[in-house]
C-alpha cells in the first residue's frame, strides 16, 4: 500500500514483512548549468508538495484523474531529485524501485514494464541507492531531471518515443523477499553492529502537463543491484503515477500557492554554500543506457530551435564540495551554514 504522509510517498508491505517500509520524496534543488561539464551533487531545498489527484476532481483534466496517484507542481526549467528513505535502519529493508518519466525508465532508457529487468538493470536497489537526480547517460554520469512542458520536444519521453503522451513520473516499488531479509537481519544481529542509513517561467500560457527532460551533467553513480533479481518479491508491488502540474496553474487547481523559485546555481555557489559528492567504494555502478546515447539536453534542443529555455545557465568555475560517504549517519544533502 502507498500512503501520502508529509509530502512523502510511503510504501508499506505488511503482508510481506513488518519492516517492509520505505518512502520516496521529491526534492527541490538547484538547476546545474547545462554546459556539458559534469557538476557535483546540488543540495536538497525541501520537498515538493504532493496532493492526491482525487482531492481536486472538479478542476483537473479527466486524463489525470484516470491515472490516479498524486499531483506535484514544478516551474518550467526547474530541477528535482528523488530521495529514497528507509524507516528502519538496523538494517534497512531493501527495495527494488523503478523510476520512469513519461513511462521511459530513467536507468535503462527502456519503455515501462510492470516487472524488473536485470539486463540492462531497470531499477535502483535500496538502501544502497540513496537518491537519483537524473537519467543514467554514462557510467557514473547522469543528466539532471528538468521539468519542461509536454509537447515542445524537450522531454525524454518525446525524444525516445516521438510522442508527448504521459509526462510525469512513474514509480513502482518491490520489497525484498521476507526470507532474504530475515537472513540479513540474522547476520546483522550476529555482528551486533549498528548500520546507519545512511526561472522564472516565461509568461506565456503552456500546457498544464509537464514532463521531465535531460538537463546538465552530474557526477552520480547508479549502483548495480548487489542482491540479484531473485531477491525481490515481484508478487508484491505498489506503483504510483506522479502527475507534474505546471506551477503557473497550481493555484487554480489546488487553491494553494506553489513553492517559490529556487535560487540559481550561481547565487548558491556565490554564497559559498556546499555542493556534494557521494562515493561508495564497495559498490559497482551500472553503465549508461544505450537508449540515452543520442539524447539532447534542454540547452541543445533550445539552441536548435532558436529558443532560450534555460535562463541563468552560466557555467560555474568554483564550487565547495562536501564529500558524503555511505557509512555513519545517513548522508544529508542540505545547504547548512556557509
Amino acid at each position: 500500500m502507498i500512503t501520502l504522509e508529509n509530502d512523502r510517498l510511503h510504501f508499506r508491505f505488511p503482508e510481506v514483512h513488518e519492516r517492509a517500509e520505505c518512502s520516496v520524496s521529491f526534492r527541490r534543488t538547484l538547476r546545474i548549468p547545462d554546459d556539458d561539464t559534469p557538476y557535483p551533487l546540488p543540495p536538497g531545498l525541501g520537498n515538493f508538495p504532493l496532493r492526491h489527484v482525487d482531492d481536486y476532481k472538479s478542476r483537473l483534466p479527466a486524463e489525470w484523474l484516470r491515472r490516479g496517484g498524486v499531483l506535484m507542481p514544478m516551474h518550467q526549467a526547474e530541477a528535482m531529485w528523488i530521495s529514497f528513505d528507509s524507516d528502519f535502519s538496523e538494517p534497512a529493508y531493501p527495495f527494488a524501485v523503478k523510476i520512469a518519466t513519461g513511462k521511459v525508465c530513467a536507468v535503462s532508457g527502456e519503455g515501462w514494464t510492470n516487472h524488473l529487468n536485470r539486463d540492462p538493470q531497470d531499477y535502483v536497489a535500496l538502501p544502497e541507492q540513496p537518491w537519483i537526480d537524473g537519467y543514467c547517460v554514462e557510467k557514473g554520469v547522469i543528466r539532471q531531471f528538468i521539468a519542461m512542458p509536454l509537447g515542445e520536444g524537450y522531454t525524454v519521453e518525446e525524444q525516445i518515443t516521438g510522442v508527448a503522451e504521459h509526462g510525469g513520473v512513474q514509480i513502482v516499488a518491490y520489497p525484498m523477499k521476507a526470507e532474504r531479509y530475515e537472513a540479513i537481519l540474522a547476520e546483522h544481529r550476529a555482528r551486533r553492529h549498528i548500520v546507519y542509513e545512511a526561472v522564472q517561467s516565461p509568461p506565456r500560457v503552456q500546457s498544464p502537463s509537464m514532463g521531465l527532460a535531460p538537463g546538465g551533467l552530474m557526477r552520480q553513480e547508479i549502483y548495480d543491484d548487489p542482491y540479484g533479481l531473485d531477491a525481490w518479491d515481484q508478487r508484491h508491488a505498489s506503483r504510483c503515477f506522479v502527475t507534474i502540474a505546471n506551477s503557473a496553474q497550481w493555484m487554480a487547481m489546488t487553491g494553494e500557492k506553489p513553492p517559490t523559485d529556487p535560487p540559481t546555481a550561481k547565487q548558491y555557489a556565490h554564497a559559498g554554500l556546499p555542493w556534494f559528492d557521494y562515493y561508495d567504494g564497495d559498490a559497482e555502478a551500472v553503465s549508461g543506457a544505450k537508449k540515452f546515447t543520442d539524447l539532447s539536453s534542454v540547452a541543445e534542443i533550445g539552441a536548435q530551435k532558436g529558443e532560450t529555455p534555460l535562463h541563468e545557465n552560466e557555467s560555474l568555475t568554483e564550487t565547495r564540495v562536501v564529500r558524503l560517504a555511505p557509512t555513519g549517519p545517513r548522508p544529508v544533502r542540505e545547504p547548512g551554514p556557509p
Binding site: 500500500m1 502507498i2 500512503t3 505488511p14 492526491h52 482525487d54 491515472r67 490516479g68 498524486v70
Partner: peptide, 17 residues
C-alpha cells in the same frame, strides 16, 4: 493492532496508465 489501523488509512489510488 497496527494492521487494523492501516486498513482505515487512506491509500494513494493507482489508476489506469
Amino acid at each position: 493492532p497496527d494492521d487494523a489501523i492501516l486498513r482505515v488509512v487512506r491509500e494513494v489510488r493507482d489508476g489506469d496508465w
